[in-house]
Design a protein around this nucleic acid. Sequence first.
DNA 1: TCCCCTGCGTGACAAACATCACAATTTAAA
DNA 2: TTTAAATTGTGATGTTTGTCACGCAGGGGA
Lengths: 187, 187
Amino acid sequence: MQQKLREHIEKIVPLTDDEFAFVRSHFTIKSYKKREFLIQEGKSVKYAYFVVSGLLMLVYNNESGKQHIVSFAMEDWWESDFLAYHTQTKATMSLQCLEDTDVFCLSLEDYQKLCAGLQKMEHFFLRKANAGHIGSQQRILSFLTSNAKERYEQLLKRYPSLFQRVPKSLLASYLGVSRETLSRLAR
Amino acid sequence: MQQKLREHIEKIVPLTDDEFAFVRSHFTIKSYKKREFLIQEGKSVKYAYFVVSGLLMLVYNNESGKQHIVSFAMEDWWESDFLAYHTQTKATMSLQCLEDTDVFCLSLEDYQKLCAGLQKMEHFFLRKANAGHIGSQQRILSFLTSNAKERYEQLLKRYPSLFQRVPKSLLASYLGVSRETLSRLAR
DNA sequence: TCCCCTGCGTGACAAACATCACAATTTAAA
DNA sequence: TTTAAATTGTGATGTTTGTCACGCAGGGGA
């Protein structure tokens, strides 16, 4: 499990054993069962999470109780309600397990200590944040340029494994269409 | 003009005069006229830009020539085709002036030198990247949760000045609706 | 001055999509 | 095993939005 984290970081910045020991000391490990919540709307957000195995969804529930999936987080992804995390405010979104999931947890304080104590890690997180920003912008672009069917096909192409792992109704909620429409598209 | 850049950075990390001189030495200044391009689709992306004054739009043109606005960049914003910039590939988007605009330009090489030479600046860019990521995620959320009219009202509320500064057809293109639909909504 | 281009509004119609209702099937829990 | 809940497909219908067409007003350049 440690190894997973180390390999992930070392794709961007190589670490000595001592450095990794330092990094490692800032994280805690937790395991969650399917349907459990890592973050609940309205509560404070203690951690950012690195997914070792399993699958999470980041969900926003609007006033009328409709759920909108902002993101799926699979193996090797970082996830949190980052707005609430960084500003230390209450979560507006929830982070929930779609499968049994193992994560590394990083508190904001440890995140800051880690960045301050090891420039490599600040660099690592900068790269991750840039990638996250770019990824979100691509998703915006797909909303601007593509209709439901095209967005569905893009998702299918990019994350084929999702179609085995999550119900179609959740994919619809990620794509921004009703489950009925998605069902009719997938033909 | 220098002062603008310094104040912007110092909102996040305080700098000594020497440090700012070091920072400053990595940037060049350019001025563009309305309708000029800072980045053109298909060409390489030399710089990330910090907007001192004026207004830019980041645009994606699809195969059929329809234009989609990914982002407006006003005073104090950083903008580029960040995917092409960071990966040193050809631009898939264009960055164009909507008003006469003054910018600081930062090449990727200078960006890397700046981050490596002054941890404060790596920290600064990390904060900016996180903010950018969070901002994009909010925009995704507005696509998921809101119809055209609601997105229009959110934009109106958040960036009221845009309505004086850019034609409605471009706002439509940012919101992901046709200019006709926007025209009918705004009543 | 005249003219052309841009921006904006609006009517008519078509396409995309949401919603409601119901049924069939699969999955999970008791 | 039995029962309840979750998942999926599909028809009918209404709403939202896009597309095409047209007219009008204002501003800048020849």
